[in-house]
């Protein structure tokens, strides 16, 4: 009897938690211990048809002006949906943008998007690369007509959004449905937290150093924060990128950029908003001894890290525990067959 009551009580608890986290469904679950996602799932309920439509669109060059490049041209799954080996985004007609294409990981938790946080909602994020002259350079109206005239997309949109004509907000919602499913939460770090993996001595030491020197901005468990920081990079004389200040016009935001996630960081090189560092060693060296003083410099970076050579190796081994092969090779995210 007692065990029956306990069973009933636990059912009740499960029921309540499901009710509380109504954004969770069979296509999206919040990893244990993670905060509530920021994305408003009520405004765009996930469905299998919606996610699959978004996936088709993500991999389809139909969204670019001359149907030459897709989202996946610059956001490759095997490199955390970042653009490996490209410092700055590489668009149509070999045009080069001014910033490094960002990784697409755990976007449901992002409050804003882009290096300067200029985009306030995932559903309007795709508009920027689709229409930017140095990216896909498309006229949105033309793209929507193209999709309306395509038999394939008429069918897929009907399945995802029954009874509605194809419009740009639905195009964006479909892309969002696919993108919010890109959740990376099964790295060695996560396995260690769940008691399924034991850090090596070097990883463990690296984790301590990380918590001490990096964790206040790259906050666990997402290893990012929706804040903007000046991390002491010298200003590129050609790009002269003022970062967040472009959006807020506030001098306090000069040279501040988004704190990006470090998940799968091993594979998302090159690093920084302008892709200036080719490997993690260079990144750690920068934080260790390359900080350029500035009045907007992030407070925690004012004191040099002064890591020894061994410390730097340990920190890098910890960063590699954030790699998640089950994300990088998840067939649900790959090119649709």
């Amino acid at each position: 009897m007692k065990s029956l009551l306990l069973l009933l009580f636990s059912f009740l608890l499960i029921g309540l938690s499901a009710f509380r986290y109504s954004e969770e469904n069979e296509y999206f679950t919040i990893p244990k211990g993670w905060p509530k996602p920021h994305y408003n799932f009520k405004g765009n309920p996930l469905t299998q048809a919606g996610i699959q439509l978004g996936r088709q669109l993500f991999y389809d060059p139909i969204l670019s002006r001359d149907s030459s490049i897709s989202c996946a041209s610059c956001h490759l799954q095997a490199t955390g949906f970042a653009h490996v080996d490209h410092e700055l985004s590489h668009g149509i007609d070999n045009r080069i943008g001014t910033r490094n294409a960002m990784a697409l990981i755990n976007l449901a938790w992002n409050e804003s998007f882009m290096w300067d946080g200029g985009i306030n909602h995932l559903d309007v994020q795709s508009l920027a690369p689709i229409t930017h002259p140095a990216e896909m350079d498309a006229d949105l109206e033309v793209i929507v007509k193209r999709l309306q005239q395509s038999e394939k997309y008429s069918n897929l949109f009907q399945k995802a959004f029954p009874g509605k004509p194809i419009t740009s907000p639905l195009l964006f919602k479909a892309l969002s449905q696919f993108m919010v499913t890109l959740v990376s939460a099964n790295s060695k770090y996560d396995q260690q937290k769940r008691g399924e993996y034991q850090f090596t001595a070097s990883e463990s030491k690296g984790y301590q150093l990380f918590q001490q020197h990096c964790g206040s901005c790259h906050r666990e468990p997402l290893f990012s924060s929706s804040t903007y920081e000046n991390n002491g990079l010298s200003v590129d004389p050609d790009l002269k990128d003022i970062g967040r200040m472009k959006i807020t016009q506030d001098p306090k935001d000069s040279l501040r950029f988004r704190v990006p996630t470090l998940r799968n960081i091993q594979f998302t090189f090159p690093y920084m908003h302008d892709g200036r560092f080719q490997n993690l060693n260079q990144v750690i060296r920068h934080y260790n001894s390359g900080i350029v003083p500035h009045k907007t410099l992030s407070k925690p970076l004012e004191k040099p890290m002064r890591l020894s050579d061994n410390d730097r190796v340990d920190l890098e081994s910890f960063l590699r525990t954030l790699s998640d092969p089950s994300f990088l090779y998840n067939t649900n995210y790959s090119y649709p067959k």
Partner: peptide, 16 residues
């Protein structure tokens, strides 16, 4: 602040 809207607010109209 809530994504893209349709009708007169559809971003195809060049007002976003």
């Amino acid at each position: 602040t809530n994504g893209a809207f349709d009708g007169d607010l559809d971003p195809v109209l060049g007002m976003y």
